[in-house]
Amino acid sequence: MKISVLALQGDFAEHAEYFRKAGAEVELVKSADKIRNSEALVIPGGESTTYNRLMKRFGIIDALKELKEKKVPVFGTCNGLILLARSATGEDPDYSLGFLDITVSRNAYGRQRESFEADISLHIDGESSFRGIFIRAPKILEVGSSVEVLAKLGDEPVLVRQGPFLGATFHPELTDDTRIAEYFLRLAEKATS
Protein backbone atom coordinates (compact mmCIF):
# COMPACT_ATOMS: atom_id res chain seq x y z
CA MET A 1 0.00 0.00 0.00
CA LYS A 2 1.43 3.35 -1.04
CA ILE A 3 0.45 6.41 1.01
CA SER A 4 0.43 9.74 -0.80
CA VAL A 5 1.06 12.75 1.42
CA LEU A 6 -0.23 16.08 0.14
CA ALA A 7 2.84 18.35 0.19
CA LEU A 8 1.47 21.78 -0.68
CA GLN A 9 2.42 23.23 2.69
CA GLY A 10 2.71 22.31 6.38
CA ASP A 11 4.25 19.37 8.21
CA PHE A 12 4.06 16.93 5.31
CA ALA A 13 7.62 15.69 5.95
CA GLU A 14 6.64 14.67 9.50
CA HIS A 15 3.61 12.78 8.14
CA ALA A 16 5.79 11.04 5.57
CA GLU A 17 8.20 9.97 8.32
CA TYR A 18 5.32 8.90 10.60
CA PHE A 19 3.90 6.58 7.93
CA ARG A 20 7.33 5.25 6.95
CA LYS A 21 7.90 4.30 10.59
CA ALA A 22 4.58 2.46 10.49
CA GLY A 23 5.90 0.45 7.52
CA ALA A 24 4.25 2.22 4.58
CA GLU A 25 5.71 3.27 1.27
CA VAL A 26 5.24 7.05 1.03
CA GLU A 27 5.13 9.52 -1.84
CA LEU A 28 4.84 13.31 -1.54
CA VAL A 29 2.30 14.68 -4.02
CA LYS A 30 1.22 18.15 -5.05
CA SER A 31 -0.11 17.99 -8.60
CA ALA A 32 -3.81 17.39 -9.26
CA ASP A 33 -2.97 14.34 -11.40
CA LYS A 34 -0.89 12.65 -8.72
CA ILE A 35 -3.57 13.36 -6.11
CA ARG A 36 -6.25 11.89 -8.39
CA ASN A 37 -4.23 8.68 -8.75
CA SER A 38 -3.55 8.21 -5.02
CA GLU A 39 -4.34 4.82 -3.44
CA ALA A 40 -4.65 6.57 -0.06
CA LEU A 41 -4.04 10.21 0.81
CA VAL A 42 -2.86 12.05 3.91
CA ILE A 43 -3.63 15.77 4.28
CA PRO A 44 -1.18 17.28 6.77
CA GLY A 45 -1.33 20.09 9.28
CA GLY A 46 -0.68 23.56 7.92
CA GLU A 47 -2.50 26.82 7.39
CA SER A 48 -5.99 26.30 5.97
CA THR A 49 -6.15 29.75 4.32
CA THR A 50 -2.93 28.94 2.45
CA TYR A 51 -4.24 25.51 1.47
CA ASN A 52 -7.52 26.98 0.32
CA ARG A 53 -5.88 29.43 -2.06
CA LEU A 54 -3.36 26.96 -3.45
CA MET A 55 -6.02 24.28 -3.95
CA LYS A 56 -8.28 26.63 -5.90
CA ARG A 57 -5.37 27.96 -7.95
CA PHE A 58 -3.97 24.55 -8.92
CA GLY A 59 -7.20 22.61 -9.53
CA ILE A 60 -6.80 20.38 -6.51
CA ILE A 61 -10.34 20.71 -5.15
CA ASP A 62 -11.78 18.72 -8.07
CA ALA A 63 -9.13 16.03 -7.61
CA LEU A 64 -10.10 15.69 -3.94
CA LYS A 65 -13.80 15.56 -4.79
CA GLU A 66 -13.03 12.64 -7.11
CA LEU A 67 -11.28 10.82 -4.25
CA LYS A 68 -14.38 11.35 -2.14
CA GLU A 69 -16.64 9.93 -4.89
CA LYS A 70 -14.36 6.90 -5.35
CA LYS A 71 -14.12 6.42 -1.56
CA VAL A 72 -10.33 6.49 -1.62
CA PRO A 73 -9.06 6.41 1.99
CA VAL A 74 -8.10 9.87 3.27
CA PHE A 75 -6.62 10.91 6.63
CA GLY A 76 -6.54 14.58 7.61
CA THR A 77 -4.99 16.19 10.68
CA CYS A 78 -5.80 19.66 11.99
CA ASN A 79 -5.91 21.67 8.73
CA GLY A 80 -6.65 18.36 6.96
CA LEU A 81 -9.61 17.71 9.27
CA ILE A 82 -11.08 21.15 8.49
CA LEU A 83 -10.88 20.24 4.82
CA LEU A 84 -12.61 16.88 5.39
CA ALA A 85 -15.45 18.36 7.49
CA ARG A 86 -18.95 19.21 6.25
CA SER A 87 -18.51 22.80 7.39
CA ALA A 88 -16.20 24.91 9.52
CA THR A 89 -16.87 28.13 11.35
CA GLY A 90 -14.32 30.84 10.67
CA GLU A 91 -13.46 29.32 7.30
CA ASP A 92 -14.41 29.85 3.65
CA PRO A 93 -17.51 27.60 3.15
CA ASP A 94 -16.00 26.22 -0.07
CA TYR A 95 -12.99 24.85 1.81
CA SER A 96 -14.72 22.04 3.67
CA LEU A 97 -15.50 19.19 1.29
CA GLY A 98 -17.75 16.98 3.41
CA PHE A 99 -15.81 13.71 3.55
CA LEU A 100 -16.84 13.53 7.21
CA ASP A 101 -20.31 14.43 8.51
CA ILE A 102 -18.95 16.75 11.20
CA THR A 103 -18.83 20.49 11.79
CA VAL A 104 -15.72 22.08 13.21
CA SER A 105 -14.56 25.41 14.58
CA ARG A 106 -11.16 26.66 13.46
CA ASN A 107 -8.49 27.80 16.02
CA ALA A 108 -11.11 26.92 18.65
CA TYR A 109 -8.78 26.83 21.65
CA GLY A 110 -7.16 30.18 20.88
CA ARG A 111 -3.75 31.33 19.77
CA GLN A 112 -0.37 29.57 20.10
CA ARG A 113 -0.20 30.51 23.81
CA GLU A 114 -3.19 28.17 24.30
CA SER A 115 -1.70 25.29 22.29
CA PHE A 116 -1.34 22.27 24.58
CA GLU A 117 -0.37 18.65 25.15
CA ALA A 118 -2.67 16.27 27.02
CA ASP A 119 -3.44 12.56 27.18
CA ILE A 120 -6.48 11.55 25.18
CA SER A 121 -8.42 8.29 25.40
CA LEU A 122 -8.04 6.26 22.25
CA HIS A 123 -10.64 3.64 21.30
CA ILE A 124 -8.79 1.46 18.82
CA ASP A 125 -8.40 -2.23 19.82
CA GLY A 126 -9.83 -1.46 23.26
CA GLU A 127 -9.25 1.68 25.27
CA SER A 128 -5.80 3.19 25.83
CA SER A 129 -4.05 6.50 26.27
CA PHE A 130 -2.40 8.55 23.50
CA ARG A 131 -0.41 11.79 23.76
CA GLY A 132 -2.42 14.52 22.04
CA ILE A 133 -0.47 17.47 20.60
CA PHE A 134 -2.92 20.31 19.92
CA ILE A 135 -1.47 23.29 18.00
CA ARG A 136 -3.89 26.16 17.30
CA ALA A 137 -6.24 23.23 16.93
CA PRO A 138 -9.81 23.05 15.62
CA LYS A 139 -12.63 21.62 17.71
CA ILE A 140 -15.26 19.17 16.47
CA LEU A 141 -18.66 20.70 17.28
CA GLU A 142 -21.18 18.23 15.82
CA VAL A 143 -20.82 14.58 14.85
CA GLY A 144 -23.30 12.93 12.45
CA SER A 145 -24.87 9.54 13.28
CA SER A 146 -22.70 7.61 10.81
CA VAL A 147 -19.46 8.97 12.26
CA GLU A 148 -17.49 6.85 14.73
CA VAL A 149 -15.61 8.68 17.50
CA LEU A 150 -12.22 6.97 17.98
CA ALA A 151 -10.63 9.28 20.54
CA LYS A 152 -11.74 11.85 23.07
CA LEU A 153 -10.14 14.66 25.05
CA GLY A 154 -12.33 14.58 28.14
CA ASP A 155 -15.77 14.54 26.48
CA GLU A 156 -14.70 16.15 23.20
CA PRO A 157 -14.27 14.01 20.08
CA VAL A 158 -10.76 14.51 18.62
CA LEU A 159 -10.37 11.53 16.24
CA VAL A 160 -13.28 10.48 14.02
CA ARG A 161 -13.91 8.04 11.20
CA GLN A 162 -16.60 7.69 8.59
CA GLY A 163 -16.10 4.82 6.12
CA PRO A 164 -12.56 5.15 4.72
CA PHE A 165 -12.13 8.73 5.93
CA LEU A 166 -10.29 9.57 9.16
CA GLY A 167 -9.72 12.96 10.79
CA ALA A 168 -7.83 14.21 13.87
CA THR A 169 -7.81 17.62 15.53
CA PHE A 170 -4.36 16.85 17.02
CA HIS A 171 -0.95 15.86 15.59
CA PRO A 172 -0.07 12.15 16.02
CA GLU A 173 2.78 12.70 13.52
CA LEU A 174 4.61 14.85 16.09
CA THR A 175 4.90 11.82 18.43
CA ASP A 176 6.78 8.52 18.07
CA ASP A 177 3.57 6.57 18.69
CA THR A 178 2.62 5.05 15.32
CA ARG A 179 -0.67 3.45 16.36
CA ILE A 180 -2.80 5.95 14.46
CA ALA A 181 -0.74 5.53 11.28
CA GLU A 182 -1.08 1.75 11.64
CA TYR A 183 -4.83 2.10 12.11
CA PHE A 184 -5.13 4.19 8.94
CA LEU A 185 -3.01 1.68 7.02
CA ARG A 186 -5.36 -1.12 8.10
CA LEU A 187 -8.35 1.03 7.17
CA ALA A 188 -6.84 1.79 3.77
CA GLU A 189 -5.96 -1.85 3.08
CA LYS A 190 -9.47 -2.98 3.99
CA ALA A 191 -11.05 -0.27 1.83
CA THR A 192 -8.98 -1.12 -1.24
CA SER A 193 -9.04 -4.94 -0.98
Binding site: Q9, G46, T50, A118, D119
Partner: peptide, 22 residues
Protein backbone atom coordinates in the same frame (compact mmCIF):
# COMPACT_ATOMS: atom_id res chain seq x y z
CA UNK B 1 -6.43 15.56 33.03
CA UNK B 2 -3.01 17.22 33.01
CA UNK B 3 -2.57 19.90 30.37
CA UNK B 4 0.88 21.19 29.38
CA UNK B 5 1.40 24.46 27.55
CA UNK B 6 4.50 26.11 26.15
CA UNK B 7 6.52 22.88 25.76
CA UNK B 8 9.39 22.84 23.29
CA UNK B 9 7.48 20.25 21.23
CA UNK B 10 4.52 22.66 20.90
CA UNK B 11 6.84 25.50 19.93
CA UNK B 12 8.66 23.50 17.26
CA UNK B 13 5.30 22.04 16.24
CA UNK B 14 3.98 25.44 15.21
CA UNK B 15 7.18 26.05 13.24
CA UNK B 16 6.59 22.72 11.44
CA UNK B 17 3.07 23.84 10.46
CA UNK B 18 4.52 26.92 8.73
CA UNK B 19 6.87 24.91 6.50
CA UNK B 20 6.42 25.30 2.77
CA UNK B 21 4.87 28.70 3.38
CA UNK B 22 5.60 32.42 3.16
Amino acid sequence: MEILRGTFRLKVGLAEMLKGGV
